[in-house]
Design a protein around this nucleic acid. Sequence first.
DNA 1: GTCTATAAATGGATAGAC
DNA 2: GTCTATCCATTTATAGAC
Lengths: 238, 238
Amino acid sequence: MPDGSARTRTARAKKVPAGEAPAAEPPAKDTARVRSPDAERTRLDIIAVARSEFVEKGLDGASVNDIAARTRTTKPMIYYYFGSKEKLYAAVMEEAYGGMRAVEQSLRLEHLEPMEAVRRLVEVTFDYHADNPDFVRLIAIENIHLARHIAAAPAIAKRNAAVIEIIRALLKRGEQEGVFRKGVDPVDLHLLISSFCFYRVSNRHTWSAIFGRDVETAKHAAAQRRMIVEAVERYLAA
Amino acid sequence: MPDGSARTRTARAKKVPAGEAPAAEPPAKDTARVRSPDAERTRLDIIAVARSEFVEKGLDGASVNDIAARTRTTKPMIYYYFGSKEKLYAAVMEEAYGGMRAVEQSLRLEHLEPMEAVRRLVEVTFDYHADNPDFVRLIAIENIHLARHIAAAPAIAKRNAAVIEIIRALLKRGEQEGVFRKGVDPVDLHLLISSFCFYRVSNRHTWSAIFGRDVETAKHAAAQRRMIVEAVERYLAA
DNA sequence: GTCTATAAATGGATAGAC
DNA sequence: GTCTATCCATTTATAGAC
């Protein structure tokens, strides 16, 4: 089993963790001091193309040949940089969570009334998923593969679990002010919010095939946005 | 593009819809009068094995070789019965929705008070998803493939859209009795319920990788079940 | 209807020159 | 670091005997 990708290694001193063949000294990838500007440019090019291919066709559906063809470089370079198709995919996954994380960090909910803060949290979560269907697809694909690749990269988990603390603080404040009920679990609340925002994007194809409704219609999207906001507000109300 | 699979054809009189090569008279599959009992047995055997392989590895990840190996028959037979890997997958998909549909039909909500009926609807939906993770995976996989295969089989859509009428009737009754608010869209309500029940199963792997919580723990499952019931009840309350 | 054997293409991955 | 050319396993799919 791979360790996620070479990216997680930060210290040059550390050698290959003893097990696989060293494979011709992979490029040391310090974000601080990059070996070659071109190398990093090539690397980002590969990641961008790979992301789009994996989004469209999944891990098994995508082919390294096709990825290489859309790159400015060639197939052996992909293996030189990433070692395998699966490690390339893992590198794509690692970047995928970045956006939502950034949004969550910029929320600054502590300046708002608790109920107002919840509304904002839900709306922001809704909008992010609606605006980033590629992100949603990547997560769905990763779940098909049992989250093997993000499970192998603990850094991802650590950074992402931060939302829970934001929600926990908000719940506590709301309880103390008497506007929220007591005993709500922050992880479960996050589940309630995320599930709706995610599912309406991830399952929009079966949904529109079965119910003949284009979920993405602006009119329905707005109604659904109001719906989840209100559902969460009412659920939390004291 | 295929029409879904040979299964949807009911009349023997109908010939191949003009386009592809007839390919050696595919087995006429009337559920009423089956040609050979063994043939139907073989067919069901293939479907069962294929379902399990597709569930585990997805459409692209599964291989016809592996499916055939686990069957009591051989690879050419799979092509004889289904024509292609993708049509075999489509046949699996067509059966996938059967269970949930059956559950919905047996609900008999009209004998319950509206609020009690909603609770029951939510609980049954929750339990079905929790007890059938394979079903959830198939739907997730189908969405990765843009629901191409169920979109090609309109019969699936028609049968499944029936829940909406059940919900619509329930909402109307609740409104008239004054216990439900007005103006709730039945499709959106179905979305609110389904999203939570589906997502907590479909995304349990990334979820447990990130939040380190096994969603399937009985304790958490029970809490989440109460949560979605209560969230929907409060959302609907007049 | 059911099998053995194989075609034909594509897949991931590398050797080795520069 | 980057490329050309290629290896070899695996894949979907069929031909053809029975």
